[in-house]
Every structure is written in structure tokens, then in C-alpha cells.
Nucleic acid binder design. Structure first.
Length: 357
RNA sequence: UGGGAUAUAGUGUAAUGGUAACACACUAGACUUUGACUCUGGUAUUGUAGGUUCGAGCCCUGCUAUCCCAG
């Protein structure tokens, strides 16, 4: 009797091909598309999100074509609580969150996995580009980068626990995007040429600030732009409109480009400076999740990513009080931003990660 | 009020009289399962009205505006 797997299908090519590969591998596949928010809530008609009606149709069409059943699960409440609300409160406190990470951690690999187990499934699968392997020597499940490093998504999965990894299949980990597209064409899947998704799925037109203000009722009053000495340079639109390292949208001109180097919630100021002022050689990381090791009790060398699309940089991880890590980079890093995830690598293997403080 | 100076795109600057450049900003797109960064493209006829000249941002005159010094 073949093993049962629940495939999270967004309606895009990746998860569809993931399902197709699992079928080929002999799994008993069931597809599910998660309904994470209702369009009315975010005032949209948007074709590129992962949850629009047409996406459900695409997923259903693929399931029909490949001959497995497909369901729609409503996770609206959980999504609001664990992704949207967290996103909003992070911005409200001045951080710059990454909602995709929360969605993976709290929705896909938590709520959805629980549901799958309840349904007597053995695994869940997604279309992420990353690999899960079992390490016989340590007895731990490892999360590794995708073979196609340009598409690697291990960064957004750093929050998975051993229990979750044990139940996770990532069929695309060894493929490149073009191979996936080709497979989709070969199988005649409707979404073979569908554009990749992008931007925050629950935000209309990528205007997250408008979303926070009108939908989430977050009030972010205007204040001053200052330089690092406190000199007032102009008026900003509200702290939530800015993030560290940002250059565009300031509306101010100087002889050289200026970047946001700091946000001060107390004074409600946005501090601007030259690019050189963005570099820091250390940071503190909290809310850790470790994967390849049980714990970090002494300094450990690693390569660290401080944002999704960035090549990792060499650093040393120092355990400090409060279950946090002090990360010291060999070379200063640009625009280390609180609220973003820091993910530690040992070669292709994810050691673990956490949230930048 | 008298004297002087300046007036070029949203901002700051550049153009031996010969068809307006650069930076920043803005904007469109690319990149991107986050916010950013980055990359590519786009955006002015030179305060205003005349004059000189084959030709004026660049010379001359009036007007307007701004700045500085005198009061």
C-alpha cells in the first residue's frame, strides 16, 4: 500500500509539478488549496496571488488532469492570526517582517500538516525549492538548499522543526526552474507558463503601507527625517512606510543618494545617511529554530543570510543569554534589518535561523 | 528706499553664441513567494516681454521674483 501525501497546491507551476512528480514516484496523492483570506478583506481583484479563485481552478484542473482528488481548506482565521496580524504588529513596532516565513511555519507546515495527519496522511508536500534529508549519523532531519541555487528557498523554511521536516516532502529540491516548466509543459498542465508569484500575497498592488493603514487600522503618523546627528531634513509619511536600507520613496534629494539607516519609534523619526552608514558587522538573533544541531553552546562558524535574496556571508555565531545568538560577520553587512530572518548555513545545510533583533 | 547679485527640469549644479549635461528626486519596467537593494528606460527649451544675431540659456533693454549690503 502506497504512502499518502497531501500536496499544498497554490495553483502555480511549482506545486503542480511537485504533485506530478509524487504521482510518478508512486505516492497516493491528494491535492489541497488553502483559502487564506477572502478577497473582500483586502479589497482586491488580483490575478497573481496564491489564492484567487482562478488559482483554485488551476489547481483543480491539474489534479483532474493527473487523476487525484483536490480539496479546498479554509485557513482564513489561522492565516489572519498568525500571518497577517503578526505582520501588522511587527510593522507597528518598527520591524520589517517576512510574512512568507510565518506562513510556512504556522500555516503550511503546522495547520496544514496537522490536518493532513488527522486525515491519516503520511506526508505533506509543497513546491518549495529545497531538500529534506535524514542524517544517519546525527539522527536528525536536515534542510538543505535546492540544487538550483538561484531558486533556492531554504531560507523561508528555516523555521521547520524536526517533527515537521520528518513529514515533509519537497519534490522540486533537485530540479531547476526551467526543468519544472518543461515538465509542466510535457504533462500539459494549464499553468505551465503562468508567471511566478511575487509580492505579498494578501496585499493589493504591493502597497503594504496602504493595507496596514486602511485594512489593519494601523496609525503611523508623519514625523521628521533627520540625519545621524539629529538635524531635521524633511517630513516622512509614517514609520511603516520605511525599512532599513531603503532609498526610493523618500521624496528628498541631496547631492548623493540617501538611505534609511535607522527608525526611531520613540521620536517617530526616520534617520537618513549615506550608504556607508548602513554597514554593521554584528547582530543579535532571537526566536531561534535549529535544525542540523540540537543546540549551539559554543561559538560556531557559519554562513549567514540576513534576507531572502542575498548570498550568505561568513560569520561566527556566539551563544548569548536569553537563548539568543550574537552573530559576528567577517565583513560588515549592508542594512541588517530587525524583523527579518537570519538563516545560518553550513555549506548546503541549514543549521537553523531566527529573527533579527 | 538706494546699491549690488542671481534667475536652467521637483532639488542642487553644468553648458568658448550654434539645436540643454550631470547628480539626487519622481516614474515605468526587469529582478524577487517579504519589505528593501540593484539594474534598464522615461521625464525641462533655460523667470517673463522684447531686441541684437544666420543662430542665444549664454549679448542688450524693460518687467517680475529672490538674495546680499546699506538703512
Amino acid at each position: 500500500m502506497s504512502e499518502k501525501v497531501l500536496v499544498a497546491m497554490s495553483g502555480g507551476v511549482d506545486s503542480s509539478v511537485a504533485a506530478a512528480l509524487l504521482i510518478e514516484q508512486g505516492f497516493d496523492v491528494t491535492g489541497v488549496t488553502m483559502k487564506l483570506f477572502s478577497n473582500e478583506d483586502i479589497g482586491l481583484e488580483r490575478s497573481k496571488t496564491c489564492c484567487s479563485l482562478s488559482d483554485v481552478e488551476d489547481a483543480r484542473s491539474v489534479a483532474y488532469k493527473l487523476g487525484f482528488s483536490h480539496h479546498v481548506f479554509n485557513f482564513g482565521e489561522q492565516f489572519k492570526e498568525n500571518v497577517i496580524d503578526r505582520f501588522a504588529s511587527a510593522y507597528a513596532r518598527g520591524d520589517t517582517p517576512n510574512p512568507c516565513i510565518d506562513c510556512n511555519r504556522y500555516i503550511k507546515f503546522s495547520e496544514l500538516l496537522d490536518r493532513a495527519l488527522l486525515l491519516d496522511m503520511d506526508y505533506i508536500a509543497t513546491g518549495h525549492y529545497a531538500r529534506v534529508e535524514f542524517d544517519n549519523t546525527t539522527g536528525r532531519y536536515l534542510l538543505k538548499k535546492a540544487t538550483d541555487s538561484s531558486k533556492d528557498q531554504s531560507y523561508v523554511l528555516f523555521g521547520l522543526t524536526q517533527e515537521q521536516l520528518k513529514r515533509t516532502l519537497l519534490p522540486l529540491g533537485g530540479l531547476s526552474k526551467s526543468e519544472v516548466r518543461r515538465l509542466a509543459e510535457e504533462q500539459g498542465l494549464v499553468n505551465a507558463r503562468k508567471p511566478d508569484s511575487q509580492d505579498i500575497c494578501f496585499v493589493k498592488d504591493g502597497d503594504y503601507a496602504a493595507f496596514l493603514e486602511t485594512q489593519m487600522k494601523i496609525i503611523s503618523p508623519p514625523g521628521n527625517f533627520t540625519d545621524s546627528s539629529g538635524k531635521i531634513l524633511g517630513t516622512h509619511k509614517g514609520l511603516i512606510h520605511y525599512t532599513i536600507g531603503q532609498r526610493k520613496g523618500l521624496g528628498l534629494s541631496f547631492e548623493k543618494p540617501k538611505y534609511v539607516i535607522r527608525k526611531d519609534s520613540e521620536l517617530n523619526t526616520v534617520v537618513l545617511g549615506d550608504e556607508s552608514e548602513l554597514f554593521r558587522d554584528s547582530m543579535t538573533v532571537k526566536d531561534l529554530n535549529l535544525i542540523s544541531v540540537e543546540a549551539i553552546t559554543e561559538p560556531m562558524a557559519a554562513f549567514v543570510k540576513t534576507r531572502y535574496s542575498q548570498t550568505e556571508a561568513p560569520a561566527v555565531l556566539y551563544p548569548v543569554d536569553g537563548g539568543k545568538l550574537q552573530v559576528r560577520f567577517h565583513k560588515p553587512q549592508r542594512a541588517i534589518t530587525s524583523g527579518q530572518a537570519a538563516v545560518f548555513y553550513d555549506g548546503d545545510t541549514v543549521i537553523g535561523g531566527g529573527t533579527i533583533e
